[in-house]
């Protein structure tokens, strides 16, 4: 039976499912136990699975990540929550310097199958340091997987896959769409693949590539462009590292045009990597330059100005029109 649920409820559903299926799954983080997490992503799990499976930690992000490394190396599936991505930086030494390297530096003797979950992105009028999109910092790291869902169903399936994955996974949850819409999600324990993009809409004229909360803006743009007779293919990258370039390249080969949409600052972002890789392998298939609709290369503004920063569907439509005008 499937009920229509929000993304944050889907996260909760996947966590509960993974914990039921595998007693090695242990959650840790700040306020995740009795309080159920500040976004309620872990609500009721402590009551259901006990305080040995849901650990309310002291308030120290470095410690949470370091603990997860040690637990994962012992064969537990440590699923750690960092309350907001703005506070993820203290974890980086452990995620980048240890989690992503442990398998490689021991040639497989030890591994680090942890999941680090963090709500990320802007659009909810949050306090300072609560709205950034710094996924590129992690997508650059070999040995780490970076996964971002864009709907309740994909949050459910991708989180199950992340927990099941033998590699360390950074799982970023776009909090702007935590409760934006509901979707039927069947609690069937079926994971989604971490090695493919998802083609959400097929089209012939142009390929729109995005992830996270920007998928909603991109799909809205595609709807409106369809009214004008422009047929957009929409791809949700979902796994930002390692990238499934084949799906994107096949689409661009078909359409000859591409717009990449993301919330993170434009320069040095994952969109730049996708654009470069598509150009390397598909330049002759392209009829127009690859366009990027992205955040400015500025500090994420405090919330009074955040709407000026966030790309929206009108920006996507403009970029599509310019690309089509080029050729």
């Amino acid at each position: 039976m499937s009920n229509a649920i929000t993304m944050v409820e889907a996260v909760n559903l996947a966590l509960g499912r993974a914990m039921s299926q595998d007693e090695k799954v242990v959650l840790l983080g700040e306020d995740i136990g009795t309080n159920g997490g500040v976004f309620r992503a872990t609500v009721d799990l402590k009551a259901k699975f006990g305080n040995k499976r849901v650990l309310d930690t002291p308030l120290a992000e470095t410690m949470i990540a370091g603990l997860a490394v040690g637990m994962a190396a012992q064969g537990l599936k440590a699923v750690a929550e960092i309350q907001f991505m703005g506070f993820i930086f203290p974890t980086m030494e452990h995620i980048v310097g240890h989690a992503a390297r442990l398998r490689n530096r021991t040639r497989g003797r030890l591994s680090c199958p942890l999941v680090l979950r963090a709500p990320y992105g802007g659009g909810i009028h949050a306090p300072e340091h609560h709205s950034e999109s710094t996924e590129a910092l992690f997508a650059h790291i070999p040995g780490l997987r970076v996964v971002i869902p864009s709907s309740p169903a994909r949050a459910y399936g991708l989180l199950l896959a992340a927990i099941d994955c033998p590699d360390p996974v950074l799982f970023l949850e776009p909090k702007r769409i935590y409760r934006a819409s509901k979707q039927p999600v069947e609690d069937n324990g079926v994971p989604l693949p971490l090695d493919t993009c998802f083609t959400l809409r097929e089209g012939d004229d142009i390929t729109l590539i995005s992830w996270g909360a920007m998928i909603s803006e991109t799909l809205q743009a595609a709807d409106r462009l369809a009214d004008e007779g422009v047929s957009c293919e929409v791809i949700d990258v979902a796994t930002l590292n390692p990238l499934d370039l084949d799906t994107m390249l096949a689409s661009v080969t078909k359409t000859g045009r591409c717009v990449i949409v993301h919330e993170a600052p434009k320069s040095g972002a994952v969109g730049a990597e996708i654009a470069a890789s598509l150009s390397e392998r598909g330049l002759l298939e392209l009829r127009a330059p690859i366009a990027r609709v992205a955040g400015y290369d500025t500090v994420m503004p405090y919330y009074r100005l955040e709407n000026h920063y966030m790309p929206n569907s009108a920006d996507v439509i403009d970029a599509v029109r310019q690309t089509l005008e080029f050729a």
């Binding site: 650990l55 470095t62 410690m63 990540a65 370091g66 603990l67 997860a68 490394v69 040690g70 637990m71 994962a72 190396a73 012992q74 064969g75 537990l76 440590a78 030494e93 452990h94 310097g97 240890h98 442990l102 530096r105 021991t106 030890l110």
Partner: peptide
């Protein structure tokens, strides 16, 4: 664990192992 080069990080890994 293998040798730990980044200073003091091993102390937290030890706590993770101990948690398990």
């Amino acid at each position: 664990f293998p040798n730990c080069v980044p200073i003091a990080t091993q102390a937290l890994h030890a706590c993770g192992v101990a948690t398990a």
